[in-house]
Amino acid sequence: MKKLLAALAAATMLALTSGAQAQTYPDRTITMVVPFSAGGPTDTVTRLVAEAMSRDLGQQIVVENVGGAGGTLGAARVAKADPDGYTLLLYHIGMATSATLYRKLPYNTLEAFDYVGLVTDVPMTIVARKDFEPGDLQSLLDYVKANKDKVTLANAGIGAASHLCGMMFMSAIQTPLVTVPYKGTGPAMTDLLGGQVDIMCDQTTNTTKQIKAGTIKAYAVTSAKRLDVLSDLPTAEEAGIAGFQVGIWHGVYAPKGTPTEITERLSKSLQLALKDPNVVARFAELGTAPATEAEATPAALKAKLESEIARWKPVIDAAGQYAD
């Protein structure tokens, strides 16, 4: 009862003060939730961006790791948070795919959030163990179709980037393969390096260094244009799979009901952060580029989320594997 009273009092105070809040925003520490554990690629992106944004906002942004259930636990936490601009979420493509992969989400993906902007779109690469026979993407496609019961396709577990890209790949070439799931990218990459599995499709964040060192074989990137860091590698489009583009895009969200002034302010700050030389340099080393000023806006993120939910739903439903 006491708790309830305290909560009510707090809610009233919030309602009274929220009008005045917008002008002085931000006047205390902001929490940016990353729905994965510390150390992973999304955590890294978040920490880089949060640090650059704090400098512009004049308030510290602390990164809180709320991992679990493919990122949906962290998203659920932010969906329920006060829409005051002090709790934000940085989540990748999983925001869109979890809407289909999870049939029992505790929030409605399209209703529960306001948008700040896109952060980056990490390209994927189609790679294989280094002694895998086919020499280029076209011969890979022929080989895979001829040996579909033998070729093994690794992924890092349901909902992981490599799982999504693998599904899209099989759907694009109309050939089901033997999929071998792992718990996380580390073990999957280990087995690819050791030649225990044949092919995988994974983010440049994980593959660029290996490709450059020649420890794995690369067939194509899944972006629209070739990458600066891997300029010899053709795009999947060029090399023979029409319309095959997959990127692990990241966006910053706020709970639904956050004042527009605040999301606009955050979006401006995000745009600045994405021009920060340190952020640009780190992103480049990971094989990706910051979102453009036009992409780092609430409208662009909203449009991206809507189109991606629509795009992945049939692919996931066709695969028929769900995470709950």
Binding site: P41, T44, R47, L48, T208, K209, Q210, K212, A213, A281, R282, E285, L286
Partner: peptide, 8 residues
Amino acid sequence: IIQGIVPG
């Protein structure tokens, strides 16, 4: 990675 060294 944050320090600018991608392990590989």
